[in-house]
């Protein structure tokens, strides 16, 4: 159907728009939950990465590297279609949350690690010199500085993870992308519908992108 066939636009109903907005809710829900878990796990992995023990600090790489260096879609299918072979079955939602959380954690761990090691060596030394122990130096000196580097980059990661969450539509979850597909097929107006869906995604993350850029500028330094 041509874009210029204006009568065809009548097929697009308000109820379709509601469907899209509902689905945006699911996208947000999936993203927020997996980002929360991903951040926590990633923080842990990142701190272990900073350990002085040469064996211990390599361990997180075992899980991080495959997660960072393969497509999320492969990870998702491995969990959702592959694991049942081993007798591990889970609903699509759980599989999606698990995969996205782990995936986020791998990227977040890298950010934590690089932010911490970016704090100049002298900061540790002057922390110890005051009489702080290791934990105190971490909390009072290092973390405060590392977090300024971390936050803008973390927001950028969160934005890209929200986009990536569109892949959960492949395991038949009715997220924003899936809803777009359904409505596009029903109305036969793919151009319009995907433009609308893209606009919704844009509206969800663009404000965050602005915040990240503002913070980056205000804090004055990036890695």
């Amino acid at each position: 159907m041509s874009v210029f066939d204006f009568a065809s636009y009548a097929k697009f109903r308000w109820s379709d728009m509601v469907l899209i907005f509902r689905a945006a809710g699911l996208t947000l829900q999936i993203t927020l939950i997996s980002l929360a878990f991903g951040t926590l796990i990633g923080l842990l992995l990142g701190i272990v990465r900073c350990s002085k023990n040469q064996v211990l600090n390599k361990l997180p790489l075992l899980i991080m590297e495959p997660l960072r260096n393969s497509p999320l879609i492969v990870q998702l299918f491995l969990v959702y279609y592959g694991l049942p072979s081993l007798g591990i079955r889970m609903p699509a939602m759980t599989a999606a949350l698990l995969t996205l959380s782990l995936n986020t954690s791998a990227f977040f761990a890298v950010l934590v690690h690089s932010s911490i090691i970016a704090v100049p060596r002298g900061q540790w030394e002057s922390g110890y010199a005051i009489g702080f122990n290791k934990l105190q130096v971490y909390v009072y000196v290092i973390a405060r500085q590392a977090i300024r580097l971390l936050i803008p980059q973390a927001i950028t990661l969160y934005i890209s993870q929200l986009q990536t969450s569109s892949l959960v539509s492949f395991v038949s979850l009715q997220d924003l992308t899936k809803a777009g597909q359904i409505v596009a097929q029903k109305t036969l107006l793919p151009f319009l519908i995907y433009a609308i869906v893209a606009a919704v995604y844009f509206a969800l993350t663009y404000p965050l992108a602005r915040v990240a850029r503002y913070l980056e500028k205000r804090m004055g330094f990036t890695i």
Partner: peptide, 24 residues
Amino acid sequence: VEVLRNTPFLIQLFFFYYGLPQFG
């Protein structure tokens, strides 16, 4: 740059694949 970074690749792909035929 902003539009591309703030929308999923999957949607961009569908947009071109299913949308372009609408323009003939």
